[in-house]
Write a protein that binds this DNA or RNA. Structure first.
Lengths: 190, 190
DNA sequence: ATAATTAATCTAGCATCGCTAGTTTGTCAA
DNA sequence: TTGACAAACTAGCGATGCTAGATTAATTAT
């Protein structure tokens, strides 16, 4: 019988509608506007239904963030052109990272600022969470012996640039110069 | 008559008690526990009194953050030892910055993550907000032509390290190695 | 086919939040 | 003493996340 299959499929579709609604509202009106009541209205079910899909609001944010990690990883990988030099690749990935952060501030906030209940560096950590790191590690590898540490530092530098600029604490006009300085950290081999 | 003087003095003292209470509760139980009702109870006044001191809750967070910026600046300046080399000074300031972030996570959150209503890079920006940047610029200056941009990048790298480690996304055990990499960014002169 | 059981969903409401209108209390000057 | 003004309070509005308990729908057993 395909009845239970249909049910799990419909349940999955409803869950996706929740995540899509959360993302849409967050990107338009900010995360403060993503309330359980508003999401319930959007999917045309009562509020408790949401709690049969997610433990709490944070986990809904987490589901959106997980999508974001997948998309960020894809964007970083797409920025790596075969024809480029090793140095250019690092620069392109850095630029792609910041482009992502500034083009999708709400998504970036979900991924890196808001509580999400996502678990990193664990055996059950989803592929999306590792993949962006992997993309960065790919371009960092030619410059470093300890790729993991160098990638962590590269990532941290980019994250700091994104956050400080997003909060208006460093000058947007000098973004390119700052990326150049980051390049210096990477290309001085270690 | 010293009556109105006494009144403004008492008002100032009450305002300080609000800020101290907010900071104390935040450092012990997190910012979510810092509610207007709880603060009102702490200072033994009714809730509307708080709104005669601050426009809204964010501004209370901002007042605590302002204290934090002053203390961070002091810690960074204290980390600069006259006997050190230029390179050691950068390293000491970096270590001091991260020490501050990890020793006072609630304070760091108020300063860099939560909405505070603080205005940066303006004519009326308080000294505390500029001073930490100044301390970093002092140790960066020997290595850079464009001190402002280099300091912004240095600061961003430290902020990123603090945030990613605070959120458990990079390995705490490798903090020293990451600082070493940041040093490389700085000491490669430009 | 009907009854009993389980699953799915809803209504209604709790506790709490930031914030404020309207009132009372206290403090001065006339 | 009275009237004006300032200071503080009580009470409550409109939200929030979340949940207990009732209700309806679907499935299984008789």
């Amino acid at each position: 019988m395909g009845i239970s299959e249909r049910k799990t499929r419909e349940r999955g579709e409803r869950e996706r509608r929740i995540v899509v609604a959360a993302r849409t509202i967050a990107e338009r009106d900010g995360w403060a506007s993503v309330t359980i009541r508003r999401l319930a209205e959007e999917i045309e079910y009562s509020q408790p239904v949401l709690y049969s899909h997610f433990e709490n609001r944070d986990q809904i944010v987490g589901a959106v963030a997980l999508e974001g990690f997948g998309e960020l990883a894809a964007m970083l990988r797409a920025a790596i052109r075969p024809s480029s030099t090793s140095k250019e690749r690092v620069e392109d990935v850095a630029a792609a990272y910041l482009d992502f952060a500034f083009a999708r501030p709400a998504m970036y906030e979900a991924m890196f600022v808001l509580p999400t209940g996502l678990r990193f560096a664990r055996s059950d950590t989803p592929a999306q969470l590792r993949d962006g790191f992997g993309a960065m590690a790919t371009v960092i590898a030619p410059f470093s012996k300890d790729v993991d540490t160098a990638t962590e530092t590269f990532w941290a530098a980019l994250h700091g640039l994104a956050e400080l600029e997003r909060h208006g604490r460093i000058r947007p006009a000098f973004r390119a110069q700052r990326i150049t300085l980051i390049m210096q950290m990477v290309s001085g081999q270690l």
